[in-house]
Computed example of a mutant assay.
Amino acid sequence: MIRVLLADDEAMIRAGVRSILATDPEIDVVAEAEDGRQAIDLAAEHRPDVVLLDIRMPRLDGLAAAAELARAQPEVKVVVLTTFDEDEFVARALGDGARGFLLKAADPRELLIGVRAVADGAAYLSPRIAQRVIAGMRGGQAARRNAARDRVATLTAREREVLALVGAGLSNQDIARRLFLAEGTVKAHVSTILQRLSANNRVQAAITAYEAGLVDD
């Protein structure tokens, strides 16, 4: 069962998201919060697998809450669910440790796919956001590409294989099956990869994989 904490200051939005999540028998909304501060307190109390955070909330906004959760409860996986898709918000959310970025205007099935993917250890971006991230990388300077390749060069051949699959959006379980490894071994590889790349999370590692050319478009 995937335990979810839902944080949004609008009761109607919470009700709608809760209804969508309820269509999946493997997802259980264990708590709801009206602001970012309450979300942090409830996360400490209920220990959810995934926290869905809106950006614009009173007391503490979703981006600040995501950063605090990443520091205080790194085992909790944060997904930003918002109407705002500005690049600044996306960059800040991912930089502060969010595992996913979803748009409220998207197909409801995307919410279920995103929650399941993040709970399973993968990263997930709304396709519209992912396209912009990839486009931004394509238009970036050669220096960024070269820097990514230099960082990737510090990895072993097996670690590069794992990184490429992280970049392709696979979970640890999927990577283990693909490479015929134990899931615990994959987790150890991912931990080492994040450390060597100086990446805060799988999303940043995936971006490095794209920049270094490890992932086909």
Rank of each mutant, 00 (worst) to 15 (best):
L5K: 09
G213K: 04
G36R: 01
A106P: 12
G16W: 08
A205D: 10
S171K: 02
E10F: 12
S171M: 09
L63C: 03
D49H: 09
R18L: 12
R47L: 10
R18G: 13
E159G: 11
V4D: 13
S171R: 06
L21H: 10
R3L: 09
A65H: 02
R56G: 02
V4Q: 08
A98Q: 08
I134D: 08
T156S: 15
A148S: 11
R37H: 12
D35K: 00
R160V: 12
E211S: 07
E26F: 14
A130V: 07
A43E: 00
A123L: 11
H46N: 04
N146F: 15
A117T: 09
M57V: 00
A65I: 01
Q38G: 03
D216R: 14
E211N: 04
A65N: 01
L69C: 05
T82E: 02
N200Q: 11
D87H: 03
A209I: 05
A164H: 04
G36I: 02
S171W: 08
I207H: 08
V90S: 08
A135N: 13
N172I: 06
R177T: 12
E34L: 04
Q131K: 14
G140D: 14
L42T: 02
L81C: 07
R138I: 12
A188E: 14
S191I: 01
D120R: 01
P108G: 00
H46P: 04
A182P: 13
F101A: 15
P127F: 14
R92N: 09
E159M: 15
A72E: 11
L163C: 11
Q204G: 07
R160D: 09
E68P: 05
E75R: 09
T83K: 00
P108V: 01
I113N: 05
L111Y: 03
K77D: 02
P108A: 05
A43M: 03
G95E: 09
Q204S: 13
A182C: 13
L155F: 05
M12A: 14
L194E: 12
A122G: 10
P48F: 00
A164P: 00
N201C: 02
E161M: 07
A33Y: 02
D174P: 12
D54Y: 04
L5E: 01
L63F: 01
V115I: 08
V51T: 04
Q73L: 14
R202A: 06
P58E: 07
A143W: 14
L94C: 05
R145N: 13
F89M: 02
P108C: 07
L63G: 01
L214Y: 03
A206V: 07
I207G: 10
K77M: 04
A65W: 01
R178T: 13
V166K: 04
L155W: 06
L194A: 02
L197C: 05
R37C: 10
R71E: 05
R145K: 15
L81G: 03
R3T: 13
A209K: 12
G139D: 15
R47A: 12
V4E: 12
M1F: 03
A105F: 06
L181V: 03
A123M: 06
A188C: 13
F180E: 15
D49M: 05
D150A: 15
A122V: 06
V203A: 05
E34M: 01
E183Q: 15
A31M: 01
V80W: 11
E32D: 03
Y124N: 11
R158H: 15
